[in-house]
Design a binder for these strands. Structure first.
Length: 269
DNA sequence: ATGGTAGTCGAACTA
């Protein structure tokens, strides 16, 4: 039984709803996890999602900033909207989603703080917040729950491998690729028992990006991207992974998000 | 070496 899940930092779901509709029509994932929805829950375009065939949704938004939402064609149950660092930010939501074949997958959707410009927690509270947030994420484990499992997706705002950025050397002191972040994220992944599903299908020698700055004159030509968006799972699910797709073309759509969708496809026998 | 763009919401904040 096929099961597909997509994650996409949409940078305003209301502004980009036409792109989301186009994406859903073309790729029809079973589940779509959005980050940076940037609207309060009563402003969320739920009717448009229903019209597109996605009747099940769990949303955790706030006015103007951040915000995550998990929407699905299959039934889901809200598990938790967890608050991190006592900040009151909407940066996490977890659901239990029917993945077919008698499976019910626990799915975490995250928007990790970007961390500001200065990679020094002593002088930059945003960077301190990012490190504290990662530390709190250690509470989540990739538990297997019998025949189902756990998936963690989202904009983690860290590019952990050298090949996750356009230039490892030039980004070593740039927030998202500093050693305290890259080593911290890898430690979080290992200690939590997570598998990096994108790197199961795309060898670590190969560069792969999911985000390109709006500030580049020509994002595709300079290709100065980073892999900030991730799909992790518990080890029991990785043998069923049959596809990873990074939708690079979405960065070239009209009025795009600066992130592109990442899709994981499973085949649960 | 700096500034470059895109959101929200109507100035200044975040990314």
């Amino acid at each position: 039984m096929p099961f597909t899940i997509a994650t996409w930092n949409i940078n305003s779901v209301r502004l980009r709803m036409p792109l989301v509709e186009q994406f859903l029509e073309r790729y029809s994932p079973d589940v779509l996890c959005l980050q940076e929805t940037k609207c309060a829950d009563d402003q969320f375009p739920a009717a448009a999602f229903r019209k597109a065939g996605y009747e099940h949704m769990a949303i955790h938004g706030q006015k103007g900033y951040h915000g995550v939402a998990t929407i699905a064609r299959r039934p889901l149950k809200l598990v938790e909207k967890r608050e991190f660092c006592g900040m009151g930010d909407s940066r996490h939501i977890s659901v239990s989603v029917d993945a077919g074949a008698g499976r019910s997958v626990l799915l975490h959707n995250f928007y990790v703080p970007a961390g500001g410009d200065e990679p020094d927690p002593a002088i930059n509270p945003k960077f301190r917040h990012k490190l504290d947030f990662l530390a709190e994420m250690h509470a989540l484990r990739a538990e297997e729950n019998g025949n189902s499992g756990t998936i963690l997706v989202g904009d983690l705002n860290i590019a952990p491998l050298e090949t996750d950025v356009w230039s490892h050397k030039q980004l070593l002191k740039v927030v998202s690729h500093t050693p305290v972040e890259t080593e911290g994220l890898e430690r979080l992944r290992r200690e939590g028992g997570w598998v990096d599903l994108m790197r199961e299908k795309i060898p670590p020698e190969e560069k792969i990006f999911t985000w390109w700055s709006y500030r580049a004159k020509d994002w595709a030509l300079s290709d100065r991207g980073r892999r900030l968006d991730h799909i992790w799972s518990s080890p029991n699910l990785s043998p069923s992974l049959n596809r990873i797709e990074v939708l690079r073309e979405a960065r070239g759509w009209d009025r795009p998000s600066d992130h592109v969708p990442v899709i994981a496809g499973f085949d649960f026998g």
